[in-house]
């Protein structure tokens, strides 16, 4: 299969930016991202086993992915949809807990799908925190105000 992929870390590395060219029509990719029976087939990394996914696909609706990790822990990733613009954009918050009281701070994910000559370009932006304000007007100010921090850390 002939697909190109690129991965880059934005500076500052407080937001993760990933892209992937997929050989599939955009409507299908959007479906794969939003319907639980599709999501469970691809969601997760090497340490995550079977995923139980529940999804309330509407703005303000919650999703939850419960995964049994290879180390025996049960890990839950959950969040709230901030924006749903089928078939091109999804914005949702992202939090997790490990079932033993550890919780991660809320972060923010933006998925953008663009049609290309060969299928769909998927762009995912995962920002290192989220707040209610971000959910309403996400992305404002955060990247710009920290531009120099990445350079600073690089000099350490």
């Amino acid at each position: 299969m002939d697909s190109m992929e690129t991965t880059e870390l934005e500076t500052p590395r407080t937001a993760l930016l990933l892209t992937r060219d997929l050989a599939a029509p955009r409507a299908l990719v959007f479906k794969a991202w939003t319907q639980p029976e599709h999501i469970v087939r691809w969601w997760g990394c090497a340490e995550t086993g079977d995923v139980k996914f529940t999804n309330d696909l509407r703005v303000g609706g919650e999703f939850s992915a419960v995964m049994k990790l290879s180390n025996g822990q049960t890990h839950r990733i959950f969040g709230v949809y901030c924006k749903i613009e089928a078939p091109e954009r999804l914005v949702f918050t992202w939090s997790w807990d490990n079932g033993e009281g550890f919780k991660g701070g809320e972060t923010l994910v933006t998925v953008t799908l663009e049609e290309t000559a060969t299928g769909t370009k998927l762009t995912l932006r995962h920002e290192s925190f989220a707040s209610e304000d971000d959910c309403q007007a996400h992305g404002e100010g955060w990247g710009a105000s920290l531009e120099r921090l990445g350079d600073f850390v690089a000099t350490l």
Binding site: M1, L9, L18, R20, V29, A32, R41, C45
Partner: peptide
């Protein structure tokens, strides 16, 4: 500041591996 930047590596791995599987799954269906 370092923990903030380490965070990126972890999520990067999660998403990259998910995208690999998404790619294969889309091909399959």
């Amino acid at each position: 500041l370092k923990p903030v930047f380490d965070w990126v590596a972890e999520y990067s791995r999660f998403w990259e591996q998910s995208f690999d599987r998404l790619e294969a799954y889309l091909e399959e269906i």
